[in-house]
């Protein structure tokens, strides 16, 4: 049950500072969309507006419309926790809960949302860990602390935790930036597998990664510091990397940026 996302004239602010301006995007279900662009151009900010994590920062707000299928995510009466349950998120740095075991980490989202019953949880944990390609490595040490895993394993644990609540969209903010090439590859394979079930949006600084895994690529940039970031263009990955519509995109991709 993957969902479609559409943003219309989306602006995001941190206090008085406008971080992104007028972003218009359509993200089709069961696709992988990569967001690229220079540091500070607002990729993470945009990603966080998609599941209303942006407003967690004190003073931050969003204007414009964001549609999930046909529902306005920022509409009146929409509960942010419900949105976040539907749109899961994996962060740049692995952040397993330090007081919890591997099992409890994966089960956390379900438990904290009121799911009970050992059998249901056991199944969900196994399914999610298998989904995150981690099951074989940890199946004998589920009661051990999640913080005792390697960085790459922790990141896959966080992915398992995110997919355990069965979201319809998965947002990933530079999920491989702290990982070695093998773990990176494992996570990329994983994304390709997960595509069958989820809509995936990934922020990455790695062009090859964007080219390898994504169906569509969006390029963000800023004119100057203090200016808001804008989406320059978004198109099929193939096209962005071979024949981009904008000169700025081409300069960035070929490394002639700035």
């Amino acid at each position: 049950m993957a969902k479609r996302i559409e943003s219309i004239g989306l602006d995001a602010y941190y206090g008085a500072f406008k971080a992104i301006e007028d972003v218009n995007v359509v993200i089709e279900p069961k696709t992988i969309t990569a967001l690229i662009g220079p540091s500070g151009c607002g990729k993470s900010t945009f990603l966080r507006t998609l599941n209303r994590m942006h407003e967690v920062v004190p003073g931050a707000r969003v204007t414009g419309r964001l549609l999930l299928d046909d529902e306005d995510v920022y509409g009146p009466g929409v509960d942010a926790t419900g949105v976040r349950r539907t749109i899961g998120m994996v962060f740049q740095r692995p952040n397993p809960f330090p007081t919890m075991s591997i099992y409890d980490n994966v089960a956390a989202g379900l438990r904290l949302n009121g799911v009970k019953g050992k059998k249901v949880l056991d199944e969900a944990v196994e399914r999610s860990l298998k989904g995150a390609n981690l099951w074989n490595e940890v199946k004998d040490r589920l009661p051990k602390p999640g913080a005792g895993l390697s960085g790459g394993q922790q990141q896959r644990l966080c992915i398992a935790r995110a997919i355990a609540v069965e979201p319809q969209v998965l947002l990933m903010d530079e999920p491989c930036s702290a990982l070695d090439p093998i773990s990176t590859l494992a996570i990329e394979d994983l994304m390709t597998e997960l595509k069958d079930r989820f809509t995936i949006v990934i922020v990455t600084h790695n062009m090859q990664q964007a080219a390898r895994v994504s169906d569509r690529t969006g390029f963000f940039t800023i004119e100057a510091t203090g200016e808001p970031g804008r989406l320059v263009e978004i198109d099929d990955t193939q096209k962005i990397f071979t024949n981009p519509g904008e000169k700025r995109t081409e300069d960035y991709i070929t490394g002639r940026f700035g």
Partner: peptide, 20 residues
């Protein structure tokens, strides 16, 4: 990070405080 991880799972704020 931990608060955000929990909130991003759709856990309400008070529960995040109490359980995480």
């Amino acid at each position: 990070d931990l608060r955000e991880a929990s909130l991003a799972l759709g856990v309400p704020r008070w529960k995040t405080v109490v359980r995480i």
